[in-house]
Nucleic acid binder design. Structure first.
Lengths: 346, 346
DNA sequence: TTGAAAGCGGTACCAT
DNA sequence: ATGGTACCGCTTTCAA
């Protein structure tokens, strides 16, 4: 490509004005040791010639590039894209950049992404663990080297830092309770991989509701997707197993956007009618669940808020000189939106 | 935060091995002027101590940070998130990073994003114009300064460079023709802002189909959304106007994911039944349009491929020394997926 | 074959 | 108030 024309530098300004580089630098940074007159002249000149400090040079000096790295499951996923949107709303306003990497639920990619991001010298990390992740030593190492991390959604307690999650226990509790109160009792649960924090929390809510209603917890009703429902096959297998059970479950709680959508499509393909043969309550952040067939009862997470809060906490962590002694786990409320798919038909 | 511990640098290696910085640098870059023995020793040491060249320093030297900037309408949008996914598949593999900015269909944000990205010294840009954009002088300036750009989806011919789009003319043509052949003749079209390339192309396909069937083109059947259907209100207004017409349209072609989903939700709210009162064919990249009520006939764009092709072309542009004399406009085929929402009910 | 030294564009300390 | 200068980590002549 054609050579990038040098944008105007400190040196250019210094030469043009017969000042030293140091003076110009200080003038532009509004140092007290520069006379107002000089400051004015320098700033005017800089303004006129559209001076922009060279980011690389600044970064090279005091390692801080106003950028944060994000590790996310997958971009094309309603939940995550809302999260990203929330993060962007903060980073845009605070003049940070966020560099997005997808784990695609693979540990190997997660590690590679992490390497990449640290090499990029990001100032901090926003991380949601992949479905495959068990050991988090790779994050520990990075964190100990001084790069602040905030975990969101899929979190870990093994690293002492901020966390932002939605109230997963409550979400599944509400969903399950709603189904129970509508006369469903054989409630299946298709969820992500066993190791994830969200999986465990959601299972707790599920069990709590059953217990409260004195319904026996049947472990066979819980199906895990080792890859978080990345492929439809994973979900189809789970559904096949559930449909083969006797008695067959009469309701289903699906634990993520992907799993929910896949489940709807698969049940449709199999001509299982919802909710008469099986009712559904699904975690989903789709913008218009009322246009599904049937209208879908959803557990809606404040994805945008999660992203926003996580980004805010991280930037605070980055910009604060001394690390805080106490970290917060922010738990945002979820909302059960009742629609046709979970209501008894007479 | 705690000071980031210095990762090992050239200087460290040089001192440790009693060599000069220059020699180490050359050895690591496999220069011909270094003896194999020295090379070996240096590389071993570097490997063992996990030497990673400092990106900022490299960038400062020869402006190339292996990063590309993306301007996109909005992340939470099935079409765009698939596009991003396609881009990521390339950048990940080629060890580039992509920095995403959302225009949110606002010219002002588009400009600010552009400024931000150039300040970040990205090596190239992947751009889809915002719905508000008319003059593209801001891009011209950047492009003339030597930063390669590839336009995708919403493109412009005013800058000589590669373009990647889907076959918009054909998409709407197919959709319109399909409706006509199914007995619908008063076909409305809700689309994005007038200025966008996609809007114009889609309108051509629509007109072509009408003309071919000798149907009168009624300008009042075409409703523009100045903000690309960002808000549901915009779409609702268009629909209200259409419903108030006499005779009312009997079919509708919606020109984007957002518009399509909004239209479905609004018509549902208004208790207009699809397709008996009005049929719908919608541009959409939703992963499971068969779970909509009714199953939605879609014009499906190869969003992932668009992203992939655009990223590939851009990286080629970045890495090639001499700019090509001829640029290509890659037009990827779209697919009409016929489902219930566009079929005559008897 | 190896190394000294001059940048790249800023920042910051120390003189003047 | 202003300027000289060393340095951040790496690349690249040019000498040795």
């Amino acid at each position: 490509m054609k050579l990038r024309p040098q944008t105007v530098t400190l040196k250019d300004i210094a030469r043009a004005m017969g000042l030293s580089i140091a003076t110009v630098s200080k003038a532009l940074r509004d140092s007290h040791e520069i006379s107002p007159a000089t400051k004015q002249r320098v700033c005017d000149y800089a303004e006129k010639h559209k001076y922009r400090p060279n980011l690389m040079a600044q970064m090279l000096r005091h390692k801080n590039g106003r950028s944060i790295g994000v590790i996310i499951g997958a971009i094309p996923n309603n939940f995550f894209s809302d999260v990203l949107n929330g993060m962007e709303s903060v980073t845009f306003q605070k003049d940070y950049h966020f560099i997005i990497t997808q784990s695609l639920e693979s540990l190997q990619r997660e590690k590679k992404n992490l390497e990449h991001l640290t090499w990029r010298a990001v100032d901090g990390l926003l991380v949601s663990l992949s479905a495959e992740t068990q050991s988090i030593d790779h994050f520990k190492k990075v964190h100990e080297s001084g790069i602040p991390i905030v975990f969101y959604d899929r979190v870990t307690n093994e690293i002492k830092t901020h966390q932002v999650v939605s109230d997963n226990v409550d979400g599944t509790y509400k969903g399950t309770m709603h189904l129970l109160e509508n006369g469903f009792s054989r409630i299946a649960h298709i969820t992500s991989s066993k190791e994830l924090s969200i999986t465990q929390e959601r299972l707790i809510g599920y069990k709590n509701a059953l217990e409260e209603k004195n319904i026996f917890f049947n472990n066979d009703y819980v199906k895990y997707c080792a890859h978080g429902g990345k492929d439809r096959d994973e979900v189809e297998e789970a559904i096949d197993q559930l449909l083969a059970m006797k008695p067959m479950p009469d309701a289903l709680i699906t634990a993520s956007d992907r799993i929910t959508i896949s489940a709807l499509a698969i049940l449709k393909k199999k001509n299982i009618s919802i909710p008469s043969q099986i009712a559904i309550v699904g975690y989903s952040n789709f913008s218009a669940p009322e246009v599904f067939q049937p209208e879908l009862t959803t557990i809606h997470q404040p994805a945008f808020e999660i992203g926003r809060a996580a980004a805010e906490l991280l930037i605070k962590l980055i910009e604060t000189k001394r690390p805080p002694t106490k970290f917060e786990k922010r738990i945002l409320p979820v909302e059960l939106q009742v629609r046709e798919s979970s209501l008894r038909v007479r």
